Amino acid sequence: MSGQVLVLAKAPVPGRVKTRLCPPCTPEQAARLAAAALADTLDVVAATPVGSRVLVIDGGYPAPPGWKTRDQRGGPLGDRLANAFADGPAVPTVLVGMDTPQLTTAHLAEALRPVTTPDGPDAVLGLAEDGGWWALGLRRPADAEVLRDIPTSTAETGARTLAGLRGRGLRVALLPVLRDVDTVDDAYAVAGRCPPESRFARALAAVR
Rank of each mutant, 00 (worst) to 15 (best):
P76S: 01
E110Q: 11
T48M: 07
T93G: 10
R53A: 11
V91E: 13
V45C: 06
V91N: 01
P121S: 07
T41F: 13
V56M: 01
W67M: 03
D79N: 09
T69A: 05
P118S: 02
A84P: 09
R32Y: 06
A106F: 11
P121E: 08
Y61N: 00
D119K: 00
H107T: 05
P65T: 04
G51L: 10
R53K: 11
P118A: 05
T93Q: 03
P64H: 02
V94K: 00
V45E: 15
K68E: 15
T116I: 07
R53M: 12
I57N: 01
R53L: 15
T105W: 10
T93I: 10
A86K: 06
D71I: 00
A39Y: 05
R113T: 08
L108W: 14
A90W: 09
K68H: 14
G88I: 03
Y61W: 15
V45Q: 08
T93N: 09
P101C: 06
P89R: 02
R53P: 14
D79S: 11
G78I: 13
A90N: 13
Q72P: 00
A90P: 12
P121H: 03
V115F: 07
L33D: 07
R80M: 06
G59Y: 03
D87P: 05
M98C: 14
P62W: 02
P76K: 01
T117H: 05
L108E: 13
N83P: 03
L81I: 15
G59Q: 10
R113Q: 07
P101V: 09
A90D: 15
T69L: 09
V96F: 07
L103V: 15
